[in-house]
Structures are given as structure tokens and as C-alpha cells.
Design a protein around this nucleic acid. Structure first.
Lengths: 163, 163
DNA sequence: TCCGGTTATATAACTGGATATGGAAAATCA
DNA sequence: TGATTTTCCATATCCAGTTATATAACCGGA
């Protein structure tokens, strides 16, 4: 077998020039690692959809447009995910009676159960893991990102913040 | 007109629980804002493809697998973008003679020109903007992300790091 | 030499975002 | 009131990534 030396991480090396790419990459990685925490539990949703449920839980019933604002995505994105969650039976999309343009998303009983259960277990765990992952960071923002990536290389997210 | 109060940013409010989503969101936003800097120049590529060109410029000709490592994505992702860049005439994908499984990506003359031109102008500008955007951050990582998002709300990325 | 395993790339199907566009309801204004 | 503009949502299409799988080339051993 040939001896391949590891290739330099160009995104990290380029520093501020690739800051956006780097944030995105790290975010996707964290979400992916979150899956392996979440999916240990049964009957859950991917972490990208979790904020939708959390938003209603936190703010009460939301229109499509409000949801887009709350999550910080565009309206079509909110529509798509909400329709999906409705198909899963986790939220209910009912037309408002005062203004028939707007549709209001509420949690179904199933959705409420899932949120309650998640809050008590998985969300706690994810929060604790991320919190410990980011503990005692120092230096410039780029240094801190380096540290986070290093820490994730040492052990996966689900091993951080253990009791 | 009705008076809609702004909706709370749930991702920010949930803190560490949504750290991944937040990184990803900020990264996408930075990339989107970078487009408006880059596309002021003629004949360029979206910022997501920029690291591919920068990687070859920095490390020399790379195989598909090495490129995936350098950028930190999976091999199929690297394949797709490299084939695309080849179609644009910016890189050349030639089969290696020693091992005909591997394909090596090099910059074409056009690609080299684009890189040289970008390095001298756009990349400098993006780097300076991101650098200033992240200047003097303090507090926890979440605080720093808050600050960055606030700063971007004040003025777009292209207004930062101006001479 | 051929056969099984491994490696490198390509392809397919899917996901979660984006932008662009269109239709229906509401609001505004002449 | 009727016409026009605005608002809200849905749909279509695209993009950049993913996982899973297929194909082709290489390598080592019987």
C-alpha cells in the first residue's frame, strides 16, 4: 500500500477568506453529529427540523411567515418543512379564519409529546455537549474554530458533556 | 397596514442547542453576501467553488480524493464540482498515467488567470471584510456570534473592511 | 495467471436550503 | 365601489452537499 500523506485543510488554511465556508462546514458537521445523539432516541426528527417544533413550543402557534423569521430561513423553506411536519402528524396547519391567506402551525398532541420528551432528554444532552465543546475557548475567532474542530477530532459530539 | 411585531430569533435564543444550525445559517449568509462582492467582478464562480481553485493554486494539482480532503467534503461532492469546473474550462481533469483510476485536477490557463486576478482583488476584499467583521469580538462564542450577526445587520459584508 | 480484496472515481437518489414566480386574499385609494 | 397594489403562501427549479452503490483499476497470493 502506498503511503499517502494527509492533505492540508485548505479551508482552515485560508482563514478569513473562507470564513463562510468554514462556518457552514462546521455547522453541518455539528448537525450530522447531533443526528447520532438524536437518533438514539426513537421516533424523532432530523435536527434541521427540530427548531420548527421548538419555535412553536417557545412562541406558540406561528404563521408560515413568522416561522421563517423565527428560524431565519426563507418563506418557501418554511412552507416545505412545515408541510412535511404536518404530513408526519407533528404539526397542524390550519387556515386562519380572520385572514384566509395565512396558515397557522400548531403542535399536535403527538408533536407536543415529542417536544416534551425531547426537552427532557435529547435536547438537554445536545445542549450540554455543545456547551462543553465550546468551554474555555480563547484567541481569535479562527483560533476558536480550530479548537472546536480539534476537539471534535478527539472525540465525537455525543461524548462531550457527559454526566 | 397591520403592525407586526418582529418574531424572536429562535435559533439564537436556544443557544447551544442549535449551535450547528446557527453556524450553518451564518456560513450560508456569509457566502451569500460574498456573492455580491464576487459577482461585481466579471467571469467568476460562486464562493462555494472558490476553494477548489484556491486549493489547486495552493497545493498544486490534486486528485479527486485529495481535493475532497482539502475542502473537507465527501468524494462525490468533490467529483461533481470538479466536473463542473472542468466544463467551465477552469480546471483540467486528466487521467493519471501511473494509476489510471485516479484523475488529477489542474488549473487551465483560464483558471490560473481567474485565480491570479481574484487573488489580487476580490479575495483581498473578502478577506479584509471578514477580518474586520470579526475584529475585537469578546465574550462567549455565542456572544461573538450575536455580535457578528448584529454587525451584519448594521451593514452588509461588502461594506466592511473598506480601505 | 486468475481470483478476491481494496482503492479511486462516478452515478443515483435524497435533503435542505435558495431564488423566481404565480395565485388568492386583503388593503388601499381614486 | 371598483381597480390597483400589497401581502401571504405555494409551487417549480436549482444548487451544493449527503449516503449508498456501481464500475474500473490495481495489488497480492495460491
Amino acid at each position: 500500500m502506498e503511503n499517502h500523506e494527509p492533505v492540508e485543510d485548505v479551508i482552515a488554511a485560508l482563514g478569513y477568506l473562507c470564513l463562510g465556508t468554514r462556518f457552514k462546514r462546521l455547522g453541518e458537521r455539528l448537525q450530522a453529529e447531533t443526528v447520532s445523539i438524536v437518533s438514539a432516541q426513537s421516533g424523532s426528527v432530523p435536527p434541521s427540523q427540530l427548531p420548527f417544533l421548538a419555535a412553536i413550543d417557545r412562541l406558540g402557534p406561528l404563521t408560515v411567515g413568522e416561522m421563517a423569521q423565527a428560524i431565519g430561513i426563507t418563506q418557501p423553506g418554511a412552507t416545505k418543512t412545515l408541510l412535511h411536519l404536518a404530513k408526519l402528524g407533528l404539526v397542524d396547519m390550519s387556515q386562519s379564519r380572520e385572514d384566509r391567506r395565512v396558515r397557522v402551525a400548531t403542535l399536535t398532541a403527538t408533536g407536543q409529546d415529542l417536544v416534551a420528551q425531547s426537552k427532557a432528554s435529547v435536547w438537554k444532552q445536545v445542549d450540554a455537549a455543545a456547551r462543553e465543546l465550546c468551554k474555555g475557548l480563547s484567541g481569535t475567532l479562527l483560533d476558536q474554530l480550530d479548537t472546536i474542530e480539534q476537539r471534535l477530532a478527539e472525540k465525537p459530539l455525543r461524548e462531550w458533556g457527559k454526566p
